[in-house]
Computed example of a mutant assay.
Amino acid sequence: MPLLRHHYGKGRVRLMRVHRDGDYNEVRELTLRVMLDGDFSAAYTDADNSRVVATDTIKNLCYIVATDHLAAGAEAFAEALGACFLDRYAHVTAVSVTSTETKWARMPVGGAPHPHAFLLDANGTPTVRAHFTRDGATIASGIDGYTFMKSTEAGWVGYLMDDATTLKETRDRIVATAMDASWRWSARPADYAAANAAILTTAMEVFATTYSDGVQDSLYRMGEAVLAAVPEVAEISMACPNKHYIPVNLAGFGRDGRNCVLLPTDEPHGQIECTVGRA
């Protein structure tokens, strides 16, 4: 039987690039599919893999090119990735790169874009949960999937360690989450929309402008600030699954990743929840 067509590659290569310029960071998160064309027919018909570039190698080259092009836009990065494979492997005749970008917008803080705090574009689903009886009503507003991140000014140290602990302490990490939050009203605000906006603005300013010793630490201080800023809120509940960004070890390729090329993953994730209310 003839082998009519073939090509192969690596899919769902996820990476975050952080271009650090002092306090000012640029972040670019991509999901890549890299497919190679060439004469790889012997791997299919004769179990001969001698010309096959391992898909794990394709993944590693994505990370290497990312390290060398931290500031490149999606198109320029795709061009660099294609050139890498064609220059490196003479028997590769074509490279197809499909790149999907997760867009992060700078978080506005104090009327200006923050240098290293970000919000996901098209962010969050506003919610209302109301319960009515003849004795009264309970109304809670909120937002689901409100996704935000900062690329520095966060750490995780001092946690319990035992023989099952493998996580290393760090004082500089990315912190990101897709938060489900709700706040229960004790009184009707003058304008629900304005009050809801003030709640998110207040919480994000705390997150962006203060060092985070952990998601627990940030959430509690965010809740405190919301209650201080909006007196009609009786309590606020926040549930925050960690969106992890794991530094890629590039030492074996003669490159220092400098915590700038990272693997995005949200499975498994830490699930941090709390409710902050008035005494």
Rank of each mutant, 00 (worst) to 15 (best):
V128M: 10
L263S: 07
T147Y: 06
A229W: 03
L160W: 12
V206M: 08
G142D: 13
T177K: 01
T201C: 05
I139M: 12
H244E: 13
R171Y: 12
A225E: 12
Y245K: 03
T202G: 05
S212C: 08
L263F: 15
C260L: 02
A197L: 06
K243P: 00
Y159L: 09
G124I: 03
L167D: 06
T133L: 07
L250R: 09
G252M: 09
D162Y: 09
I246M: 09
F253T: 04
Y220L: 09
G254I: 03
P247H: 14
S237R: 14
I199K: 04
L250H: 07
M149K: 01
S141Y: 13
L200G: 02
R188M: 10
D213K: 04
N196V: 00
T209I: 01
A176W: 08
A228G: 11
H244A: 09
E153V: 04
L227E: 13
F253C: 13
I174S: 10
T125H: 08
Q216N: 10
R221N: 05
P268L: 09
K243H: 08
D191E: 13
T138C: 03
M179V: 02
T138G: 07
I143C: 13
L262V: 03
D172M: 00
M238E: 13
R221M: 07
E205M: 04
F253N: 15
N242C: 02
A198N: 04
Y220M: 06
S218W: 10
T265N: 11
D144W: 01
Q216H: 02
R129V: 06
K150G: 04
C240M: 15
R173V: 02
G158Y: 12
V248D: 03
